[in-house]
C-alpha cells in the first residue's frame, strides 16, 4: 500500500499509471461479476428462486449446499480484497472526507449484508431474495462509484 504514503499521487510517475490500471481492472471486475452472477444464479427474483429452490414445474433442481458455500467463500475473498483496495485509494484521493466515509461505509455494509442475506435466502426462504438483490446492487454501485470517482480525481479533477 505504498500509495498511502506517496505525497501527491497525481504527479507520481509510477503510482499514477499503476493506480489507473488497477482502477480500470477493478471497475471491469465489478461489471463482469454482475454479468457472471446474472448467468450463473440469476439477478432477478424468478431466476434466483429457480436456482436456489428449484422449480418442479420446469424440472429444475435446486443448487446444493456445497455450491452455495463455495460461491460465498470465493465471493467473500474477492469482495474483501476489492473493497479494501478500492476504499484505500478512494479515501486517499477524495478530498471530501465525509462523503468518502459515507460511500465506503455504504459499500462495506451492503457487501456484508450481501453475504448474510444470501445465506438467509438459501436457508430461510424467498423473503430474503429481494433484500439480497438490493444489497448486491448497492455494493456493486458504490464500488463502481468509488472506482470512477478515483479515476476522475487521479486524472481530471484538480487538487483543491
Amino acid at each position: 500500500m505504498r500509495f498511502t504514503l506517496v505525497k501527491d499521487l497525481r504527479s507520481d510517475a509510477l503510482m499514477r499509471p499503476l493506480l489507473n490500471g488497477l482502477l480500470l481492472f477493478t471497475g471491469s471486475f465489478l461489471v463482469a461479476d454482475a454479468f457472471l452472477k446474472r448467468d450463473h444464479i440469476g439477478l432477478d427474483r424468478e431466476r434466483l428462486s429457480n436456482t436456489l429452490y428449484g422449480n418442479e414445474a420446469e424440472f429444475i433442481d435446486p443448487v446444493s449446499e456445497h455450491f452455495v458455500l463455495e460461491l460465498l467463500h470465493s465471493d467473500i475473498f474477492f469482495m474483501m480484497m476489492t473493497l479494501l483496495t478500492l476504499s484505500a485509494i478512494y479515501a486517499r484521493l477524495c478530498p471530501l472526507k465525509r462523503i468518502a466515509a459515507v460511500v465506503i461505509n455504504l459499500a462495506m455494509v451492503a457487501a456484508l449484508a450481501d453475504v448474510v442475506l444470501f445465506v438467509l435466502a438459501y436457508y430461510r426462504g424467498d423473503a430474503y431474495l429481494l433484500p439480497w438483490l438490493g444489497a448486491f446492487w448497492t455494493w456493486h454501485g458504490a464500488a463502481l462509484f468509488m472506482a470512477f470517482a478515483s479515476l476522475l480525481y487521479l486524472n481530471v479533477l484538480k487538487k483543491p
Binding site: 476504499s87 465506503i104 462495506m108
Partner: peptide, 14 residues
C-alpha cells in the same frame, strides 16, 4: 485517517 481504520475493521469482519 479515520477512513483507513474503517477499511481495516471491515477487512477484519470480512
Amino acid at each position: 485517517q479515520r477512513a483507513y481504520r474503517f477499511a481495516i475493521a471491515y477487512f477484519a469482519l470480512f
